[in-house]
Computed example of a mutant assay.
Amino acid sequence: MSTVALSTGRITAPRSEARTTGGATAVRPTASARPAAVREGSDRPATRMRLTRRGRLVLVGLGLALAAGAGSIAGQAVAEAPIAEQATTTVVVGPGDSLWTIAQGIAAPGEDVRDVVSGLAELNELDGLGLQVGEELLLPAS
């Protein structure tokens, strides 16, 4: 067995245990003879943390997720090109006028009227297709 000698304020290392095996004496330190780091304020020995395979996979996955998130945020930060100024004229909406009838009047031959209506709505920043009498609309200059 191992023993610990105590003196005032000092702890000495435990002694090794000797075994006799067939004429030869083998000296092995006992488990308590090995120095064990002790956490401050605890009686449990400090152990080294080991990262398991699953832990490594989780860390790699988190790293990839962070990289993907940073890449998507960086992709959104790209500035759009400024919109080129377009020459326009104005027209006042009269009774019975609609965006469709105005678009039919300015559409080039063979041009789809739906595309012209969409362009007028975008140019005038209209939410709906309803117009008010007396409202001024911007039309692209031809």
Rank of each mutant, 00 (worst) to 15 (best):
M1E: 13
S2M: 09
S2A: 14
V4Y: 06
A5E: 07
L6E: 09
S7I: 04
S7P: 01
G9H: 05
R10F: 09
I11K: 12
T12S: 06
T12H: 10
A13S: 14
R15L: 14
R15G: 14
R15N: 15
S16A: 15
E17Y: 13
E17P: 00
A18S: 15
R19H: 05
T20E: 14
T20V: 11
G22N: 11
R28M: 10
R28E: 09
P29R: 15
P29W: 12
P29I: 05
T30S: 14
T30M: 10
T30P: 03
S32C: 12
A33L: 06
A33D: 11
A33I: 02
A36P: 00
A36R: 09
A37N: 00
V38W: 04
R39T: 01
R39G: 03
G41A: 05
R44E: 14
P45T: 05
P45C: 00
R48T: 09
M49L: 13
R50T: 07
L51Y: 01
L51S: 14
R53I: 00
R53W: 00
G55Q: 10
G55C: 12
V58F: 02
L59K: 01
G61W: 04
G61S: 13
L62A: 14
L62Y: 15
G63Q: 02
L64F: 06
A65G: 14
A65C: 12
L66K: 07
L66F: 04
L66R: 07
A67E: 09
A67K: 01
A67V: 03
G69M: 14
A70E: 10
G71F: 03
S72H: 08
A74L: 09
A77F: 08
A77L: 15
V78C: 02
A79R: 11
E80W: 00
A81W: 03
A84E: 02
E85G: 02
E85T: 01
A87R: 06
T88S: 01
V91S: 02
V92T: 10
V92N: 00
V92C: 01
V92H: 02
V93S: 03
G94I: 00
G94V: 00
G94Q: 09
P95M: 01
D97E: 12
S98R: 11
S98F: 02
L99Q: 04
L99H: 05
L99G: 09
W100N: 07
W100H: 07
T101K: 15
I102R: 04
A103P: 11
G105L: 08
I106D: 05
A107Q: 05
A108L: 03
G110A: 08
G110Q: 08
E111H: 09
D112Q: 10
R114Q: 13
R114I: 12
V116K: 03
V116Y: 01
S118H: 03
A121R: 15
E122M: 10
E122G: 07
N124C: 06
L126A: 03
D127I: 13
G128Q: 08
G128E: 11
L129F: 07
L129K: 06
L129R: 10
G130R: 13
G130E: 15
L131T: 04
L131G: 07
Q132I: 02
V133H: 06
V133I: 13
V133W: 09
G134N: 10
E135Q: 15
L137Y: 07
L138P: 11
L139R: 03
L139M: 07
A141Q: 05
